[in-house]
Simulated assay, not measured.
Amino acid sequence: MALITLLTDFGYRDHYVAALKARLLQLAPATPVVDISHGVEPFNIAHAVHVLQAVFRDFPPGTVHLVGVDDHGAGPEPGWHAARFEGHYFVAGDNGILALLCNGEPEELVALPAAITPSPSRDVLLPAAVALAQGEPLTSLGPVITEFHRLNNRQVRLQDHRITGHVAHVDHYGNLITNISRTAVDAVGHGRGFAVHFGREVVRELHPHFSAAPPGEAVVVFNSQGCLCVGICQGNASELLGLNFDSQIDVRFPTE
């Protein structure tokens, strides 16, 4: 029996998470389950993708990830899909999450049966996740498809002496997590020092962690996923700097 993870925007105040788990206990009481989070901002696809991308590879191959965020899908006609990508399985609404998560195209994608239900995560996605966790082949869940709702990730712009990226996520502490990777910085920088520009601020020193700077100072680090991040030591960078999701962040290298 493979592991099932749960990522939803259900929150923690209501009964929705308990109802999902109660259904799981009815379908497969021995299935191991891990809650990634139920605190994704309601209907926030970008938030869900960021959280899942940051952690899904840490789970064993064959893990099934249920994504119950905006779970009715995009458009007037609801749709739900199951996909395989990098040795993992994903079940989600047809709302662009799979395109963003898989950088455009899953390795294999099937359509799940349509249903009229107030809770697609419980009634459509969960049975599919259980079937996959029990070893059913992906193609047993529905027909293979190639057409699905597509969204594109924000692309980093690389130049000889500059990288232009954006804030991909603001975390619980107000830290600004960008889409600029350590790999991109190394490829453009070739060992050169660099300055990070955001809003009216410039930071020229890279720190190993957010607490390495004096309290109240802006700090730039690479997180454990290799993403460039901007924070305020013991402060909320998003609020104090006035930057949010999609705000521009520049990395500039000396020209001489």
Results as ranks from 00 to 15, higher is better:
68 G>M: 10
69 V>Y: 08
70 D>C: 01
70 D>I: 00
70 D>T: 01
70 D>M: 00
70 D>Q: 08
71 D>E: 13
71 D>M: 12
71 D>S: 13
71 D>Y: 00
71 D>I: 07
72 H>Q: 15
72 H>N: 14
72 H>L: 11
72 H>E: 12
72 H>F: 14
72 H>W: 06
72 H>V: 15
72 H>A: 14
73 G>K: 11
73 G>W: 05
73 G>E: 10
73 G>C: 08
74 A>L: 07
74 A>P: 00
75 G>K: 07
75 G>T: 04
75 G>H: 04
75 G>Q: 03
75 G>C: 06
75 G>R: 05
75 G>P: 02
76 P>Q: 13
76 P>W: 12
76 P>G: 08
76 P>R: 15
76 P>M: 10
76 P>D: 14
77 E>A: 12
77 E>G: 07
77 E>R: 12
77 E>Y: 05
77 E>Q: 09
77 E>F: 11
78 P>T: 14
78 P>L: 10
78 P>G: 13
78 P>E: 13
79 G>C: 08
79 G>W: 04
79 G>P: 04
79 G>M: 02
79 G>H: 05
80 W>A: 13
80 W>F: 02
80 W>M: 08
80 W>Q: 13
80 W>E: 04
81 H>K: 13
81 H>I: 15
81 H>G: 02
81 H>R: 15
82 A>Y: 02
82 A>P: 01
82 A>V: 00
83 A>C: 09
83 A>W: 13
83 A>N: 04
84 R>F: 01
84 R>K: 03
84 R>M: 04
84 R>L: 06
84 R>G: 03
84 R>P: 00
85 F>N: 03
85 F>A: 03
85 F>R: 03
86 E>N: 11
86 E>W: 11
86 E>K: 14
87 G>D: 11
88 H>K: 09
88 H>L: 11
88 H>M: 15
88 H>G: 09
89 Y>R: 01
89 Y>Q: 02
89 Y>N: 01
89 Y>S: 00
89 Y>E: 04
90 F>Q: 09
90 F>D: 12
90 F>W: 14
90 F>C: 11
90 F>V: 08
91 V>E: 03
91 V>R: 06
91 V>S: 02
91 V>N: 04
92 A>I: 06
92 A>N: 10
93 G>N: 05
94 D>Q: 06
94 D>K: 10
94 D>A: 10
94 D>H: 01
94 D>T: 06
95 N>S: 11
95 N>G: 08
95 N>P: 06
95 N>R: 10
95 N>V: 13
96 G>T: 13
96 G>D: 12
96 G>S: 14
97 I>P: 00
97 I>V: 12
97 I>A: 03
98 L>K: 06
98 L>C: 07
99 A>S: 12
99 A>R: 02
99 A>N: 01
99 A>E: 01
99 A>K: 01
99 A>T: 04
99 A>V: 02
100 L>S: 05
100 L>W: 02
101 L>V: 15
101 L>G: 11
101 L>R: 13
101 L>Y: 06
101 L>C: 11
101 L>W: 11
102 C>T: 12
102 C>F: 02
103 N>T: 07
104 G>Y: 13
104 G>D: 15
104 G>K: 14
105 E>L: 08
105 E>I: 03
105 E>H: 05
105 E>R: 12
106 P>S: 11
106 P>C: 05
106 P>W: 12
106 P>M: 10
